[in-house]
Nucleic acid binder design. Structure first.
Length: 691
DNA sequence: GAGCACTGC
């Protein structure tokens, strides 16, 4: 059955270690079998008698496919003893003893059951990927181990370098290594960094094609521009695929044909292509990062980490020995590359996560003292608190409000959940639900349309942004347009053909429907009006509805407000270090007869691409903005963070005169969080001093 | 007047 998997030989040792320790870190490389076997071993040893074994995965597909596999190996029906739970789909039952789930679902479960006491074992799989959710779970689980004493076992599985660090986080818990089942991969470095990565990877690909025996070539690049730049048929007897053409990539190649697959980091984790023997690694990745002082995201091309480089190389050794051509020098790898990828928690806006943690209402957890494996910057936490206060989720002392409590239960970013709450008061909840659902899927909605634009660019006139038959938001902006699009789809009885005709991705629109249904269910018990999403027939009624909706959006997006500059159409952001930003050209927001945009707008996102842009904007009125400006004037960040500035200084002084208080160690997990928090504070204070 | 990598509740 699964006896060929390397991990099976380590069963005795792993089980003994788990028996003796509350937390164990297991380092297992690709192909070790950890995802499918650990749960079964624990099941055999009786750990499912006192509770369920939970195994988290960062991705939905992984949760489903691993669960299916385990059910098969145990010879049981999926959904009975072995099941899975992902968003929109819970295939578990009263019989379920082994449950695979996404890390996001487990986090949501904490809301109704903070101690997760239905579980006897929690396995956080793929922890090295350091997804935002896994990082939060790591902190929560560390606490749970203390609270639930010896009744809970925790396994953290990780690949490659950072196992020691996770062990340190869990007070030097044991680390077990399980070998993977990879074939050796020979690493070749370039002598120097190339001037053009596209050109250099082409040349390398050519060399491989001419000199090396059969085997497909996987090329890691940063984005779409490289797909377009690489000519499709640059050598005979070969095929070049962008990874997006999944159907062709996954069907077997024609005989005597070498495939060249150009991919982004999607091929690092999510997709595996059989037959790859050669990897070409540009050494770069496109990464989204958040700047808490400006509230702006940027998409930057950055050097990958050593972990990522090794992950990429590993893709060459899955079926037989392979080769990896790195388009950078070994010195660069050794000296410039970071050991591990900067975790998501240090690259994202934390408003949602902070609200979530506050809503758990754990007696011993203060958000600024929360024990993260890698703490986010103080600035980032303060930014989150400020934003949450502006949208009434926390009061001026940082305590969660009743509005905030309800917001946290919605699977939405805080601006949108606040909009729903306000819309419920305004009598436009149904419309707000639609907008929130549309924005949740926004990036996947218009993709088809954009591709159309690309391909038609050379020979026909460029198409105007909204194709003629899509609504235009009545001039109020993109939120209203998204609402109108969904309403039209509804009027067309959710016809798939209608989506296609209007350049909307069917899968994206189906996702919107799912999200909307889920949100409606969650809001049902507090909803004050009908949620059926139908359009009001009468023009006047519709306009009044839009006004109420815009008003609700203004309350929800009080943390994302911009003011137009006098005499031109640039905007200044409010509430952050002021930035000059533009309405994104794809926006449907209309100008007045003088060509001017409204004086105030809210935006869904600030993103710096070629220039700083506001994406998805909505016009709001001055009278709605005034109270927000007043609130901003009164904002006191020290008070919000529980008087952090003062109290931290005081606590620091106290510590000089008395020994640090050690909490009692339970279940072999002594507490080292104080020193880690101390270090974060020191960094914070040092920065403050410099200013 | 531009076009964005990948996930997830």
């Amino acid at each position: 059955m699964a006896n060929h998997l390397p991990i099976v030989q380590f069963e005795e040792k792993i089980m003994k270690t788990v028996e003796d320790n509350a937390v164990v870190v297991i380092i297992g490389e690709t192909g070790s079998g950890k995802s499918t076997q650990l749960s079964q071993m624990l099941h055999r040893r009786g750990y499912t008698k006192s509770g369920i074994i939970a195994v988290t995965q960062p991705r939905r597909v992984a949760a489903v496919s691993v669960a299916r596999r385990v059910a098969q190996e145990l010879g049981v029906t999926l959904g009975e003893e072995v099941g899975y739970a992902i968003r929109f789909e819970d295939r578990t039952s009263d019989l379920t003893r082994i449950k695979y789930l996404t890390d996001g679902v487990l986090l949501r479960e904490c809301l109704s059951n903070p101690e997760l006491d239905q579980y006897s074992v929690i396995i956080l799989d793929e922890a090295h990927e350091r997804s935002l959710n896994t990082d939060i779970l790591l902190g929560l689980v560390k606490r749970l181990v203390k609270v639930r004493a010896s009744k809970l076992k925790v396994l953290i599985t990780s690949a490659t370098l950072d196992g020691e660090k996770v062990s340190e986080f869990f007070s030097d818990c044991p680390v077990l290594n399980v070998p993977g089942k990879l074939y050796p991969v020979e690493i070749m470095y370039s002598e120097e960094s190339p001037k053009s990565y596209i050109e250099s990877s082409l040349r390398t690909a050519m060399d491989i094609h001419v000199r090396e025996p059969e085997g497909d070539v996987l090329i890691f690049m940063t984005g779409q521009e490289s797909y377009l730049a690489i000519p499709y048929t640059f050598v005979v007897n070969s095929h070049v695929f962008p990874m997006t053409l999944q159907v062709r990539v996954f069907s077997p190649p024609p005989p005597n044909c070498r495939r060249f697959i150009v991919a982004t980091n999607i091929a690092e984790t999510s997709l595996t292509v059989d037959g790859v023997v050669y990897v070409i690694d540009s050494g770069y990745v496109k990464q989204r990062q958040y700047n808490p002082s400006t509230g702006m995201y940027s998409l930057d091309i950055v050097q990958i980490s050593k972990v990522q480089a090794n992950q990429r190389a590993g893709r060459a050794g899955r079926t037989r020995p392979g080769k990896c051509y790195r388009l950078y020098s070994s010195e660069a790898y050794q000296e410039e590359f970071l050991d591990v990828t900067v975790p998501e928690i240090q690259r994202s806006s934390l408003a949602g996560s902070v609200l979530y943690l506050k809503s758990l209402d754990l007696p011993d957890i203060d958000i600024l003292k929360f024990d993260f494996l890698d703490p986010p910057s103080f600035e980032s936490l303060e930014d989150a608190l400020k934003q949450l206060h502006l949208i009434d989720a926390i009061d001026d002392t940082g305590l969660i409000t009743s509005v905030g409590k309800t917001m946290a239960e919605l699977p939405l970013e805080p601006s949108l959940s606040r909009t729903l709450m306000e819309a419920n008061e305004n009598g436009c909840l149904s419309q707000a639900l639609t907008v929130a659902a549309m924005l949740s899927a926004e990036t996947t909605l218009l993709a088809a349309q954009r591709l159309c634009q690309y391909s038609g660019k050379s020979n026909e006139k460029k198409r105007k942004h909204p194709p003629p038959d899509l609504p235009d938001g009545s001039g109020w902006g993109d939120h209203i347009q998204l609402l109108q699009i969904f309403e039209q789809w509804d009027q067309n009885e959710f016809d798939i053909g209608w989506c296609k005709n209007n350049g909307l991705q069917v899968r994206g629109m189906m996702f919107v429907k799912d999200v909307r249904r889920q949100l409606s269910q969650l809001m049902q018990k507090i909803a004050k009006g009908s949620l059926n999403g139908r359009t009001n027939e009468r023009y006047k009624e519709r306009q009044r509805g839009y006004k109420n909706l815009r008003k609700a959006l203004c309350v929800g997006y009080a943390n994302k407000l911009a003011e137009r500059m006098v005499q031109h159409n640039g905007f200044r952001t409010i509430g952050f270090k002021p930035q000059l930003v533009q309405v994104h050209p794809s926006s449907t927001l209309k100008t007045d007869e003088d060509g001017m945009f409204p004086n105030y707008i809210v935006y869904h996102e600030l993103i710096a691409t070629s220039r700083p842009f506001m994406r998805n904007v909505c016009a709001v009125e001055m009278e709605w903005v005034s109270p927000i400006l007043k609130k901003l004037e009164k904002l006191n960040i020290d008070k919000l963070s529980g008087g952090s500035g003062h109290s931290i200084r005081e606590e620091n002084e106290k510590k000089v005169s008395s020994l640090p208080k050690k909490e009692e160690a339970v279940a072999g997990v002594p507490d080292d969080s104080e020193s880690r928090i101390q270090a974060a504070r020191d960094r914070f204070l040092a920065r403050k001093g410099k200013k």
